[in-house]
């Protein structure tokens, strides 16, 4: 028996919208720790890891660990039927091939029930070790989204370089080239507008903009994004979900031949 209640139901919509561009089908895992997912895109060069901690839910019951294969577009179709202020309750049963969503309006005058079919998914689970990164950049998530979108109209790849001067995003394409430098800036009215660059070693890595642009679908989840870079590791683009957990995207850098 599994029952999760989230008063801020719109959060679940945002989570699904954040990852469905990258992954079509995914296996959601439920345990005492929380509601989580790990999935790779179809070409296996990017990975998404989601965690919504049990403490973040208004009600959380999970009698035993359970994995549920879901199609994210179908999930989005169901969740789109919920109002933005609705309370969402998600229910599952051991051995059942369906799950259910219940949407309650804040005034309790409308209650909707949706049942969704589960899928069999052969998912490959990877162990992601804790790592020390050469550089960690924190910046407003909207700024990062803007940069990826702008550069994506010029080139296919972005070179992210971190020096003590700041972080530089560069691209090159048929029509020309572009460089955007963001300097550390903590002199702002609100902490979410800050850009901070934590550098242990300078680092410069190349990534496919198509994936970076897909990661920015998570922008509505968080005001800030954290980009962790190391030459030996996939980049981690993390959107923290207040009081609940995170969505982390991993992308392998392109390598010189």
């Amino acid at each position: 028996m599994l029952e999760l209640r989230l008063v801020q139901g719109s959060l679940l919509k945002k989570v699904v919208d954040a990852i469905r561009d990258l992954v079509n089908d995914a296996s959601f895992d439920c345990s005492a720790t929380g509601f989580s997912l790990q999935a790779m895109d179809s070409s296996h060069v990017a990975l998404v890891a989601l965690l919504l901690r049990s403490e973040g839910f208004d009600h959380y019951r999970c009698d035993r660990n359970i994995s549920m294969g879901m199609n994210l577009n179908n999930m989005a179709k169901m969740l789109r039927c919920a109002g933005n202020d609705d309370i969402i309750t998600f229910k599952g049963d051991d051995g059942s091939d369906t799950v259910s969503f219940m949407f309650e309006s804040p005034t309790q005058d409308k209650i909707s029930d949706f049942e969704m079919k589960l899928m069999d998914i052969d998912s490959e689970r990877l162990g992601i070790p804790e790592a020390k990164y050469q550089a960690i950049v924190r910046m407003p998530s909207t700024e990062f989204a803007r940069i990826c979108k702008d550069l994506g109209s010029i080139g296919d790849t972005v070179v992210i370089s971190v020096t003590k001067e700041g972080v530089k995003f560069s691209t090159r394409g048929d029509i020309g080239s572009a460089n955007i430098v963001c300097r550390q800036n903590t002199d702002v009215d609100k902490p979410e507008q800050a850009t901070t660059v934590e550098m242990n070693d300078p680092v410069s890595l190349t990534f496919a903009l198509r994936y970076m642009n897909s990661f920015t679908k998570a922008t509505p989840l968080s005001n800030q994004v954290t980009i962790s870079l190391s030459s030996e590791l996939p980049v981690v683009v993390e959107y923290k979900i207040a009081e609940m957990g995170y969505v982390r995207f991993y992308l392998a850098p392109k390598i010189e031949e």
Binding site: M40, H44, V45, E124, L126, I128, P234, A252, K254, E257
Partner: peptide, 14 residues
């Protein structure tokens, strides 16, 4: 084009 390794190049399967 620059080659791009897969995730399993970096992270081991469970």
């Amino acid at each position: 084009a620059m080659p791009q390794p897969r995730m399993t190049f970096y992270f081991r399967r469970f």
